[in-house]
Amino acid sequence: METLRLTPDIVMLRFAVGQAYLIRGGDGFALVDSGPAGCADAVLDALRACGARPGDLREIVLTHSHADHTGSAAHLAAATGATIAAGAADAPVIRGEAPEPPPVLRDREHPLFEAVAPTVPPAPPTPVHRELADGDVLEWGIAAHVLHVPGHTAGSVAVHLPHARAVFTGDTVAEHGGRVIPNVFNTDRAGVLAAVRRLAALGVETACFGHGYPALTGAAEALRRAARDG
């Protein structure tokens, strides 16, 4: 796992597939996404490298239900006592109560999906203690607002930190080859494009994606280009 400190309070944890983010709050840490199954110990090591104990992880927010983002959440919650939050429409999938709706793949996405999907281990059923809705406020000791951004999955959420002018997009947006793009493997591509436009309107400076390196400056303009170029 690669660790990259983006700001004094945000650390990116980059796995073989996908990534997660540790965020320092008022009295502890939050985690956006958890990485695939088998990554929990590496996340705990990263937490310790930040000078924290496992019990300092207060909440894990899962941006959507895909296994590369949810796979280690149950292990981490058990090891730390953290609560798990996710979008209401994705919560049954994360809990193992409903199947994952398949993506609607465009022709050019099929080879990539066939190459990537088998490399992601299945996620174990994971508790969701809080089902998130648009406009919810997270209790992180800093301002943290939830946006419901359906399209990649029905329950996809983003987290906006107004004070830091930062947003965690989940898989609504990705970075590939130096370009910020709407992500692939979506259930509703039109919904994703609408979500990218909404994220662009936040006027953020920093955008942290589910895949690819974050946009640390000029994120709002990069998101506008991604929505426009589709």
Rank of each mutant, 00 (worst) to 15 (best):
L4F: 07
T172D: 12
R108H: 14
T153Y: 00
L138C: 00
R130F: 02
H66N: 04
C50S: 15
A222L: 14
G212E: 04
G26Y: 08
L62G: 12
P127S: 07
T70I: 13
A73F: 14
V11S: 11
V196G: 13
P101N: 11
V104L: 13
A117N: 03
T172V: 15
A143L: 05
I181R: 15
D68I: 04
R106G: 11
M12C: 08
C208K: 08
T153W: 03
G26L: 10
E100K: 04
E139W: 08
V167P: 14
F29K: 00
H160S: 05
R48S: 07
A88E: 14
A16S: 13
C50T: 15
R165T: 09
C50G: 10
P127G: 07
P8K: 06
D41L: 10
A42V: 00
A86M: 10
G178C: 13
P122T: 05
T126A: 06
V157Q: 07
A85R: 09
C39M: 01
V32L: 15
L202H: 09
A91S: 06
D134R: 01
A215H: 00
L202T: 13
P124E: 06
P92C: 05
A200R: 01
T187G: 03
D27A: 14
T153F: 07
V43K: 13
R165V: 01
G96W: 06
R24Q: 12
G25R: 06
S34Q: 06
G230Q: 09
L31R: 10
A67Y: 04
P8E: 03
E2V: 01
G203Q: 10
A52Q: 02
A201H: 11
A49Q: 10
P214H: 04
A49I: 03
A201F: 11
W140T: 03
P102T: 13
G55H: 10
G141I: 03
A46P: 13
M12W: 07
H64N: 15
H69Y: 13
D134A: 01
I142C: 11
A82T: 06
H110T: 00
N183L: 00
H148G: 14
G141R: 00
P121D: 00
G28D: 08
E97D: 15
H69G: 15
I10W: 09
V128P: 04
A67V: 01
H129C: 05
G155E: 12
G191Q: 04
V173G: 08
A46L: 13
F209P: 03
V11Q: 09
G38I: 06
N183M: 08
L57V: 09
A174W: 02
R108D: 15
P111Y: 03
G210L: 10
I23H: 14
V167D: 01
G18F: 03
L132V: 06
T7Y: 03
A222V: 02
V149N: 08
D56N: 10
